[in-house]
Each structure stands twice: as structure tokens, then as C-alpha cells.
Design a protein around this nucleic acid. Structure first.
Lengths: 109, 109
DNA sequence: CTCCCTTACGAAGGCCGTAACGATT
DNA sequence: AATCGTTACGGCCTTCGTAAGGGAG
């Protein structure tokens, strides 16, 4: 008999939200981030709001001039970077394996 | 004048998909993973299918007896682990900062 | 017949974009 | 007036769950 109660690592966070966080931080505003991600401003704004709700703390300070990383946001930043870096590494592994497989196939012919 | 063409790190991958991948790998089947994640089997099956489509390669081999990690899946595994670990670290940072802030507040009273 | 995953399909919910708003320079 | 982010709202699209399908022991 096996018993598994629950497994959850992410509390519902999604990469699209973390991506929005990183992009805003990188380009300095929601407007530019929206442009860079080919989305509307409200879409970006909502993603950040969702992420903040899931974390339970604000990641940005809302100033009249725009938005700026909060203290928590600055602390969260390196972890967000790590998440996205791990994703890119995953992609890289896939590409590597595809290449190796191609070479294998070529030898078998 | 500034020019930002596009920013994308994830190719549309989402944490819910990676979470499903990890859970299946952990518990050994879609059925058990669905139970653990409080979702239906088809939901899990679809998430994996989506993830595989976004990566462009199959992560599991489908056997009549169930599903098992493919070669690519095994290579992807440590990166998936790293992604989820980074997420959990992010949570930890948030909690730490909340705690510090509480203590600050208490001193200010 | 049972187990496991996939496919089909209808329904619910989430996310997007446009538009309008409030605040600041 | 212009910039920037948020709120409101209608619509689409995605994802879910139930149910049915198909292969293997």
C-alpha cells in the first residue's frame, strides 16, 4: 500500500511571471518590458501582480515615475536568474543530445 | 533612442509542466503523479505532452506497462531539479525577509 | 478483466487586448 | 499634454474533468 498526500514545489508560480519580473528589472519599466515581450502593458502588470500575490510580498515599489525593485525584489532577483539559467541549460542539453543522436544516426547508415 | 527586439528565456515552458515531469519521475507513473498533484491523469499527460512539444523531444518512453524516462529525459532531469530548487530558494528568501521585517517593525514600536 | 496512458468533447476559468482612469512631470 | 502603471470589461483560448479508446499482461 502506498500513500502520497501531495507534491508541490512552486505554489503556482509560473515561468512567464518570473520572465516578466526579470525583463522589467532589465529594461527598467513595464512599458518597455511589454514591448520586449510582445505583450500589452496590462498583461505584464498583471503577471507581476500575480507573482507578488503568490509570493505574498511586493517585488516592486510603485512610484509615479514608474516602478522600481523593492528590497524583497532585490533579494529575489538572483534566484529568478538562477531559475531562468537552469531553464536555458535544460534547452542546451536538449540541443546537445539531438546533435549526438544525429551523429549516431549518420554512423548507422 | 532605444531598440529592444525581443526577450524570451523560456520558449513558453511553464513550471507546472516541469513540476509534472519531476513528479512523474519521482513516483513512477502518470496515475500516481496525478493523485499526488490533485489532478486527473489526462491533465498530467497533457502537461508532459506540452513540455515535450516545447522542447522538441520526448522526455518519456511510452510502454504498455507505463511510462519511463527517455535518454533526453534523464539528461533534462538535473536541470529540472535545479529549476525547482531555485524556486524553493526564492521562497525561502521571501520568508527570511518577511521575518527580518517583522523584527524591524517590533523594534520600531 | 485490469492497468496505464491517450484521445474526444463539452464546460469553466484564466489571460489577453482595448479602453478608460488617476497620478505625476 | 505626455508618460507610466492600474482597473474595467468583453472575448478568446487554454486547460480541466469525465468518458471512451486501445494496447499489454
Amino acid at each position: 500500500m502506498e500513500l502520497i498526500i501531495a507534491i508541490s514545489y512552486t505554489d503556482g508560480m509560473e515561468l512567464s511571471e518570473i520572465e516578466a519580473f526579470m525583463t522589467i528589472q532589465l529594461v527598467g519599466s513595464c512599458t518597455k518590458a511589454a514591448e520586449a515581450m510582445h505583450l500589452s502593458q496590462p498583461a505584464i502588470s498583471r503577471r507581476i501582480e500575480l507573482l507578488e500575490r503568490k509570493l505574498g510580498v511586493p517585488l516592486f515599489e510603485r512610484l509615479s515615475s514608474g516602478i522600481r525593485l523593492s528590497e524583497v525584489g532585490r533579494a529575489f532577483l538572483p534566484h529568478a536568474r538562477q531559475v531562468l539559467a537552469a531553464i536555458e541549460d535544460g534547452h542546451a542539453v536538449r540541443l546537445l543530445i539531438e546533435k549526438l543522436r544525429d551523429e549516431q544516426d549518420r554512423q548507422e547508415i
